[in-house]
Amino acid sequence: MVPLGIIFMYSFGENVSLVEVKTTWTFDNYKRIFEPELMTLLWRTLWISILATAICIVVAFPVALVIATASPSSKAWLLLLIMLPFWTNLLIRTYSLLNILGTRGRLNELLGWIWLRTNDFLTFVGAGDLGLLGAKFVPIKFLGTPGGVVLGIVYVSLPFAILPIYSALERMDTSYLEASMDLGAGQLQTFFRILVPLAMPGILTAFIITFIPALGQFLTPELLGRGQVDMIANVIQRQFKGANDWPFGSALSLMLLYVTFILLALRAFGDAARSKREANL
């Protein structure tokens, strides 16, 4: 709490010299957040985080379902597979993604190979002259694009999304599903009206646990975004280093903290409303 207090004091401060910050209770640092370029970056940070979180949850749900319904012995192995990447440093994992996603990276190598084979096949069946796939393989640009950043965030946060959904599904009483099917609901209807609502607390936790760290990402935009897709944390980092503007950096980072608090508060309200509803049933 003490460092947070210091940041709070700094955020109302001014640089009086290169090495000294004085808390003058000015709102200037907060006013600067509303400059158009910072709004642009905040908006970019928000949509990248939301998109990455949404993809995480959509991918995590079936994975969690598979683990939750697996036999106890394979469950342990599957969980281990999910946890395994955590034993590697985040930086190393990000660097390995650089190697995979580059225009001359492994993924484009694979796509190029597939393109070549498909083209050979088309030529073989006599459709080669139609140029269905273009004259030559064009590598997909992942790095330096918002898509690459989203991909990077999904990659590092996916396990965090899987685990809470898994734990919610695991505790679920499967007889609800049987009851739903017995009473004439189809697969889809059972999925959306029984399974998803029952897993909702896990999904909400997964949302918060991936969305909040995504808001503060600076390594992924820097490396996978190649400095082309900066997010708000890159600006914060600069304030504490090159720009030497700790008061403004503090105000910006508290701003992210406030967003986090609002989300957690919404979550708490949601939980309260849910238990009230359940109590009324």
Partner: peptide, 19 residues
Amino acid sequence: GAEWVRKIDESWTRIKAAG
């Protein structure tokens, strides 16, 4: 100088936010 360090950083933020 401190004033220009700040102006340069603000300019950089605008460059990074562009596009």
